[in-house]
Structure formats: C-alpha cells, structure tokens
Design a protein around this nucleic acid. Sequence first.
DNA 1: GACGACATGTAAAGAGTTACATGATTAT
DNA 2: ATAATCATGTAACTCTTTACATGTCGTC
Lengths: 179, 179
Amino acid sequence: MELANTAYVILGLLHERPRSGYDIKQAADHSTRHFWAISYGQIYPELKRLTDEGFVEVEDASTGSRPRNVYRITELGAAALADWASDPTLAACELRDEMLLKVFFSDAVSSDEKLDLLQAMRARHEAVAANLRGLEGHVAGVHKAGHHMHLEVMRYGIGLHTWCADWCRDLERRLGGAD
Amino acid sequence: MELANTAYVILGLLHERPRSGYDIKQAADHSTRHFWAISYGQIYPELKRLTDEGFVEVEDASTGSRPRNVYRITELGAAALADWASDPTLAACELRDEMLLKVFFSDAVSSDEKLDLLQAMRARHEAVAANLRGLEGHVAGVHKAGHHMHLEVMRYGIGLHTWCADWCRDLERRLGGAD
DNA sequence: GACGACATGTAAAGAGTTACATGATTAT
DNA sequence: ATAATCATGTAACTCTTTACATGTCGTC
C-alpha cells in the first residue's frame, strides 16, 4: 500500500477541495508543474487505485450526458497525506535540463553559438518566471483560504528562475565582452 | 538515427578524451549528475548502439584477464555532438523535487513539522553546494585544457543550490519568528 | 584473506509521456 | 457552424533505475 509521489500530488490537491481528474490536471499545471509534473496517463489510473484503497471517494457529478467524477479525500487519505508531508527524510531533487547540458558541452562549438544557447536559455527562464508571476496573483487569492505555502513555493519558483536568467545574462556578458 | 540526450552525455564526455563505460559513469557522477544523471543500465547498451552507428570506436585495453573497453569518439560522432550542441531550440528544464512538494502541501501539517521539513531541505542544498565546491577545484584543473564551460556550469550548480538554501533559511526565519 | 575500487553487462520493474479514441457543452 | 474547453480513459512507447550476476586487481 505504498503510494508514489504522484499519488500525493493528487491527494494534496484533493485535500484543498474535491476535484475531477480534469480539475486535478488543471490545478497541477498551474502549481506543482514546475517541480512535479503529472499527466492524464497517471491521473486517471491513480484515481482508480486511490479509490480502491479508500484514500478518496468518488461522487458522480455528471451534467446531462456529460460525465464528471468528482473525487473527495477521505480521512484515511488525509492521514496518509499528513504522514507523508511530515516526514522530513532527505530526498534528492532531480533536475533534467537539456539546454544546460548543451551549455556544459559547448566548448565544442563556436563563441557565437555559445551565446545563442545562453540567450535561448535565458529567454526560457525569463518566460517561466513571467508565467509564475502571472500565476502569483491568482494564488494570492487562494492564499487567504489558508494555503500560505502555495504562495511561498510559487515565489520560490519565481526567484529560482530569475536567478537562472541572471546567471545566463552574466555569463553572456562575460563571454561577449572578454572574447 | 536520432540520439537521446543520454547519448549526447556519453558523446560529450568522450569528446574530452577516450573513456571506458566505467570512466563515463565516474565522470558523469562528478559533473552532469546534477542536471542529467545516467546509470550503467543506460551507458553500456548506449555505447553498443553508438559503436554500431559509427559515432564511437572501441579499443580493447584489457590488462591481463581484466576486460576494459575504451571508447573514442569518431568524426561522425563529433559532428553529431556539435550539431546537437549548437541547436538553441528551447527545451524545458524538468525538476522533480519531492521535498519541495512536501513543503508545497505542508499547510496540512503543524508549524514544527513545517520547520523540520525546511531545515532538512536546506541541509540538502547546503550539502549539494558543498559537494560541488569540492569538485570545483578539480574541474578548475581540467579547465586549463579548454573546458571553460565545465567550470561555469559547476559554478551555476553551486550558485543555484546556495540560492535554494538561502530561500529555505529565509522562510524558516519568517515562519519561526512571526508564528 | 578481506576489502575497496575497477570493470562489464543484463533483466525486470517502474515511472512517465504521448498519441489515440470518444464525446458533450459553451462561446463566438 | 466551428472552435475552444470540458471530460474520461487506454495503449504503446520511452526512458530510467535497480537488482542481479560475474570477475580482476591492488593494498592493508
């Protein structure tokens, strides 16, 4: 009865309020996506499993002939979530960044191409930071409902990607200026 | 004949100098691990594929009855690496951080547990930054051989994880002080 | 002699993405 | 009408990790 991290994303989002699989995907795309992305291919099978194990309950909320299943976390589910969230066991943070990989090996390419790479990478981080800043206002509203950490983590993302963009800018300057 | 990113990690490391599968694993663990980890289960099959496709050449370097295959990048391989590295196409940077996920959902746990979580997360980032700082001196030596970007990316890692540790510290202070 | 580093490889399991398939409702 | 959004789900595929299996060489 061990749950995967992806299950806890679902449980965590359902702890806020009942949601459909579709809603879970939307909510994840606007929040956890930046440090734990999930897809429909995981959500629907996982919801079935969580229902079978008693961590969530399903309620039919179909309108006319459009199906809609709304899931609600159970006490068992809330306990499992709290157990998981309160365990401070060290877990690695895994990063996979193809562009940084290219930068790492870019001694094999020309100075111009190196700069192009860094500029593209900076643009990416600026875009992510801007996107998160857009989300920030929305989260600040929900914030009042008691989800303080959602806002804090959103700002972590903004700060992190801003730092990355700054690093790119600084390296661009040093490569463009000195070389 | 499309290569996966993992293949480019191997190609990139072989571009520096010929290496065995074991050497590749060691080198990756001391460099790309922080933004692109690879395992033996990928390395050996991938080396076979790269050899079959002509991107690398294998040379027998066995000593006595201990087997050792040293791989060397070919011109075709170097061209493929340069092609890949010089393409600034936007690619997402994917992060999976279980501890941050817990922090995100930690409104469901007590203030004390929240602080424990943040302290553990800070310890993690401090450890990674310290580890990278230890590697930095080593990389600075190779640096002279023309691998400037290796050192830059190493410092990116140090800066990034230091930023993360600082963020944790700041949030700890605000949660511990005001609450 | 035992331990740690060197060395190669495979098989199975697990995690996650993508593409596909289907259809309803709402807004333009 | 038609496009966008809402809505559910599966199957195939890809990528990656983990565990296993095997054996050598140098050093304490």
